[in-house]
């Protein structure tokens, strides 16, 4: 670290970070504050659209209407389902990758992480093609005789969940992988030498030590599912609305910006609350054993 006594050094960090700071104040904080304010305005077609008068109308509407309750509940349930599936699939996969070596490991990594670089729209399109009633999944299931009428995946919760797991599970793998990397490579041998079976080593030694990775991975997956837009919109269609698609419809469909803003603010607040409580929980639980 440089010495702080030098007066130049007291100004320099502020100078260096000032472009970023200006950018964030002008283009991040102000828009967010404007949205917050907008969410307290109301919308009246007769009075020419947005009315700049402070009121709680939008929040009252969202929080009391069972239509919105349903949407928030669906989003929450979807997030839980996707998160659980990502944990169940991503954790073992990360562990398997961790135990591989050489060329195969790099190839598998590429196959799992590569899709992260492909737009969500493209990945969702792939599932839409697979899901169609004439899609590959139905055709092959029909062909081997598992089913005799096409199963419906397009515009169903199941379809949305499958696609979202596909979109988000790489984050889970990455997160667990990172905590496996920190694990002492001899830790499993230590367990074995003390008489534990491979399964017990996994259950009682490996999993508890990578728990922070699993938990932070779930947090990422949960937050990203809760605010996912393109996938639920394409695969869920108009009927299976989630919070993000609802806000979109209010904004660009019915043009009720204040209501859309209120929904967005609620999503943000819910996100922040969940993330901070979850972090607190993790910290409390693991502060002693992990730094």
């Amino acid at each position: 670290m440089n010495t702080l006594s030098n007066p130049v050094n007291q100004v320099r960090p502020y100078l260096l970070s000032s472009p970023a700071l200006l950018l964030y104040i002008g283009l991040f904080m102000i828009p967010l504050i404007m949205t917050l304010m907008l969410s307290f305005y109301s919308y009246d077609v007769d009075r020419g659209g947005v009315v700049a008068e402070f009121s709680f109308t939008n929040y009252v509407e969202v929080l009391s209407d069972s239509y919105f309750h349903g949407i928030f509940f669906r989003t929450f349930a979807l997030s839980i389902a996707v998160t659980v599936l990502c944990v169940l699939l991503g954790t073992p996969e990360a562990y398997i990758l961790h135990r591989m070596s050489g060329r195969w490991k790099s190839i598998c990594m590429l196959a799992i992480l590569g899709p992260l670089l492909v737009s969500v729209v493209v990945r969702t399109l792939g599932w839409a093609i697979l899901f169609g009633s004439k899609g590959v999944i139905n055709e092959s299931l029909l062909a081997i005789g598992v089913i005799d009428t096409p199963i419906k995946l397009m515009f169903t919760n199941t379809g949305v969940i499958i696609a979202l797991v596909h979109v988000l599970v790489p984050f889970m793998v990455l997160s667990v992988w990172a905590s496996l990397q920190k694990l002492d490579p001899m830790i499993e041998n230590a367990g074995l030498s003390l008489g534990a079976s491979p399964f017990i080593v996994l259950r009682q030694i490996v999993v508890p030590q990578i728990m922070p990775g699993i938990l932070s991975g779930s947090l990422i997956v949960f937050a990203l599912t809760a605010s996912a837009f393109a996938t639920p919109s394409i695969l869920g269609g108009r009927r299976l609305k989630v919070v993000a698609t609802t806000a979109y419809d209010e904004y660009l469909g019915t043009l009720n910006w204040p209501l859309g803003a209120a929904i967005a603010v609620l999503l943000l607040v819910a996100n922040v609350i969940i993330i901070t409580t979850y972090n607190k929980f993790i910290e409390r639980k693991y502060s002693q054993a992990f730094k």
Partner: peptide, 18 residues
């Protein structure tokens, strides 16, 4: 680092108004 924590839908809404 906070834009990573803000759902993109919220940023979209905010930028549209702004």
């Amino acid at each position: 680092l906070s834009p990573m924590m803000v759902p993109h839908i919220v940023l979209g809404v905010a930028f549209l108004s702004f």
